[in-house]
Design a protein around this nucleic acid. Structure first.
Length: 414
RNA sequence: GCUGGAGUCGUCUAGUGGCUAUGACAGCAGACUGUAAAUCUGCCGGAUUAAGUUCCAUCGUAGGUUCGAGUCCUACCUCCAGCA
């Protein structure tokens, strides 16, 4: 049952937007789609029945976090069967940890200009006030060869370069892999981004080369996406997109593309447009790590097909609940007997939980009740974002995207 | 009634002569974007201010000792334990 991997464009809108289907060995993904993040092979506090009920079509896990379990996963036949999720999967390369355990260690990956206010410098480029973590404090140190990681929990060292990342990912055996990349932070300047981008491009070639050796080891075809970096600079973004789109090893190219970076919200649309105008239309594009509704709309209209993000689940655990009328902090609803969101079709709302009852679970001293809250709130927020992508797809197919977008955003951000 | 112990900011709590009275929880406000996140930041006696301002209050109550008292002394009140 070797099913090939390919992207089928169902409908185009605007210049870059589209709805389509990604065919993978473990099933189809109808796009635009949101993939749930299950870093270690499961979404925190959710069963796979819960996850299926959110409508999520695919799960994203992480090669870095699963590196030590990868032999056992291979033994079980790959991530889909090992995890018992059984559907389409994607693994990140560990590239995000190059930043989150390195230059961005201990920092919030902020995308809001107000937080970073530094004004514009003389030549008109944005000056960012964000700072990088001191080199000696980092748990990820970069050389051209690869990255030396120190495990945040047990302090064990690991060296991961493109070859190691591909070997790990091919043992994990997700349907889609990411090339090993270096994510720069908002504090990195143009010159550093030039250097980092060269490295990411070299790593992409090495990733592809190594990937080809192992991609069929588990008996089905594993695909590889290249990751586009280049910060907020048009020349870097366009050049890397062109380069990676054409990159060939032994006659083989990348199966799709990851759109990466630490984005300033206001730059997101342009950056995606620069990338996607250069990328071939017949391959899928995954926008890495974003899922706030406004970001999803910007992503879709600029050609992104799939998304993933920890925000729906993390924010749920922290009390931020998504509703069609905007985000609410559950703390304030101790006496509110309405559901989290009116007319919501998630399992939590359908089961009759009210804001007050969920808040009570959340604030309970009982660990079991807290866990119940984390699960129920995560289900709600995940369903909210998954449903958003379903409705966006629907609106594209019905030539109704602009209207749907305007109505949704006005109501959500009023 | 006697003996012993204890009363600190909503709750618990540190503090036995020294200048802004700890810390935790609760509460309040905010953050979170390819998960070091069961996390993080700020506020948390009252009034006042453009302000990180100014003023006032404060360790059960009332006195006292002292340059200085949550801390020492006296009386009272309340609570707890034991004895009657």
């Amino acid at each position: 049952m070797k099913r090939p991997f390919y992207f089928e464009e169902t409908k185009r809108f605007g210049t870059l937007g589209r709805a389509g289907i990604i065919h993978t060995p473990h099933g189809d993904i109808r796009t635009p789609a949101f993939m749930a993040v299950g870093t270690k092979g499961e979404v925190k506090y959710l069963s796979f029945d819960d996850l299926h009920e959110t409508g999520a079509q695919a799960m994203l896990s992480n090669g870095y976090h699963l590196r030590r379990q990868s032999p056992e996963i291979a033994e079980a036949g790959g991530l889909a069967s090992w995890s018992t999720w059984h559907g389409p999967t994607l693994t990140d390369s560990g590239g995000f940890q190059v930043m989150s355990l390195g230059s961005g260690l201990g920092k919030v990956v902020s995308y809001d200009r107000a937080e970073l206010e530094g004004g514009a410098s003389k030549n008109g480029t944005v000056r960012i006030k964000a700072t990088n973590t001191a080199h000696k404090e980092r748990l990820a140190k970069i050389t051209d060869k690869g990255v030396s990681f120190t495990d945040p929990f047990d302090g064990q060292p690991d060296f991961i370069g493109p070859e190691e990342s591909m070997q790990i990912q091919c043992r994990i055996g997700a349907d889609i892999h990411m090339a090993f990349d270096e994510l720069t932070s908002l504090a990195d300047d143009y010159d550093y981004n030039v250097e980092a981008l060269k490295r990411t491009e070299k790593w992409a070639r090495r990733s592809l080369k190594e990937h080809l050796k192992h991609r069929d080891d588990l008996g089905y075809h594993q695909s590889l996406y290249a990751v586009l970096q280049g910060g907020r600079w048009e020349d870097l973004r366009r050049s890397t997109a062109k380069k990676l789109a054409k990159m060939t090893v032994a006659g083989t190219q990348f199966d799709g593309f990851g759109l990466g970076g630490a984005f300033l919200k206001e730059d997101l649309g342009n950056i995606l447009r620069w990338c996607n105008e250069e990328l071939p239309a017949n391959k899928p594009r995954h926008l890495l790590g974003l899922s706030h509704p406004d970001d999803i709309f910007v992503g879709v209209e600029n050609g992104a097909d799939t998304f993933d993000c920890v925000a729906p689940t993390r924010e749920a655990r922290h009390g931020k609940i998504y509703t069609r009328d905007g985000e609410i902090n559950l703390r304030k609803f101790a006496n509110d007997e309405r559901p989290l969101d009116l007319d919501c079709d998630c399992a939590t709302c359908k089961a009759g939980y009210t804001r007050a009852s969920l808040r009570a679970l959340w604030k309970s001293g009982d660990p079991d009740l807290k866990r119940a809250y984390w699960r129920l709130a995560s289900i709600h927020n995940l369903r909210f974002i998954v449903r958003l992508t379903e409705e966006i797809r629907e609106s594209i197919l019905n030539d109704n995207f602009e209207t749907y977008k305007t109505e949704f955003l006005q109501r959500y951000y009023h």
